[in-house]
């Protein structure tokens, strides 16, 4: 296999061979044609399901591939969203405001994750401490943002808005052009593809192999000459940036954000998507994130008050009966059913 083919088709994720890639191409074609077949409202909803995928991918990278669990990745989602709102809102007269805001949002997420990650990874804390501290961080962020109501809580001309949240956040765009409706949908689609294939290649590279080795056996990997603290830190920051990307897209989608986006219920969602999909497969998490966002939306828009109970119960059931993830286990089942010829082609 040539270099690029090996990076994309390597063993880091499920799905190989001509049948698989044909299916991927067909699905993509479907997504590309989708806006021309449905209403603008449906396009906007689908864009919402798509924009959560980078957050899910970040969780899969951190939890499934690196073995580090974070219960507070929505903090970076929120930090990027609020930072974008503040920067782009203050630069609303400048045509480059949204771009500066987007870069600023990702940077602030990365810096906060970097400082936090320094404390936990360089202390070599036990594995269970990281999810707890990340959860505490996001709860604190929610509390802080919740008490920022009133005129005294403003940065430049932008109000933080307390529990009512920040409103009137500018859409993303270049100069005169704004991403809205269908163009925003395509923006999300392209970014999701870039994140997925980028991560798939990263995890098939030497870096990814070491990340997986750390998950399997930290001590053995360290005694092969790797600074595992630095690797875990880097993966943590990268996954926070991915969460930040979802946060950016979220505030551009609805033009608002509230503190509940970094609250306990939201914090649980990426963990649920990742667990239900199967944390050791990027593709499975992409599918689960999309499907569960659709499910949550459909359940709650029908006025079903059991939505969150169902989602929580789904997590418990998955952990009990499908510990490797529902999508991953279905994929393995499918793989066994397919003819032997396909398995040969995979090699």
């Amino acid at each position: 296999m040539s270099g690029l083919a090996r990076l994309v088709g390597g063993p880091a994720d499920i799905g190989r061979g001509p049948v698989f890639w044909s299916l991927v191409a067909l699905t993509l074609l479907g997504f590309a044609l989708y806006p021309s077949a449905v209403s603008e409202f449906q396009v906007s909803n689908t864009a919402y399901y798509l924009l959560n995928i980078p957050l899910g991918l970040g969780m899969a990278l951190l939890w499934g591939y690196c073995g580090v669990l974070s219960f507070g990745h929505v903090a970076y989602f929120g930090i990027a969203g609020y930072s974008y709102g503040v920067i782009a809102g203050n630069l609303s007269d400048s045509p480059s405001g949204p771009v500066v805001g987007a870069l600023g949002g990702l940077l602030v997420s990365a810096v906060v994750a970097g400082v936090f990650g320094y404390f936990v990874f360089y202390a070599r804390v036990q594995k269970w401490i990281i999810p707890i501290l990340t959860l505490v961080l996001t709860l604190l962020l929610e509390t802080f943002l919740g008490q920022t109501a009133g005129y005294q809580w403003r940065i430049g001309s932008v109000l933080l808005g307390g529990y009512n949240g920040m409103t009137g956040i500018p859409s993303f765009g270049f100069g005169e052009f704004e991403f809205q409706g269908t163009s925003f949908y395509y923006l999300c689609l392209v970014l999701v593809l870039a994140c997925y294939f980028g991560l798939r290649m990263l995890l098939n590279s030497g870096f990814g192999q070491v990340v997986v080795a750390i998950r399997e056996d930290e001590l053995r990997t360290e005694t092969l000459g790797y600074d595992i603290r630095a690797r875990q830190w880097a993966v943590f920051v990268l996954s926070a940036v991915l969460a930040g990307l979802s946060g950016l897209l979220y505030v551009q989608w609805g033009n608002y954000i509230t503190p509940s986006q970094v609250g306990l219920l939201q914090a649980a969602l990426p963990v649920i998507w990742t667990a239900v999909g199967g944390s050791t497969s990027l593709l499975a998490v992409v599918i689960a994130t999309f499907a569960l966002n659709w499910l949550t939306y459909t359940l709650s828009s029908e006025g079903n008050q059991y939505a969150m109970v169902i989602i929580g119960a789904l997590l418990v059931v998955t952990m009990l009966f499908f510990p490797r993830g529902i999508v991953v286990m279905l994929a393995e089942h499918l793989d066994r059913l397919l003819p032997r010829a396909r398995r040969e082609a995979r090699r």
């Binding site: 999810p131 649980a268 963990v271 667990a275 059991y306 969150m308 109970v309 997590l315 418990v316 510990p323």
Partner: peptide, 17 residues
Amino acid sequence: QLGALVVTWGISLVMGQ
């Protein structure tokens, strides 16, 4: 340990909701 963390979190969601 991590599995226990996640499943008890699921339980907490169901209990709260």
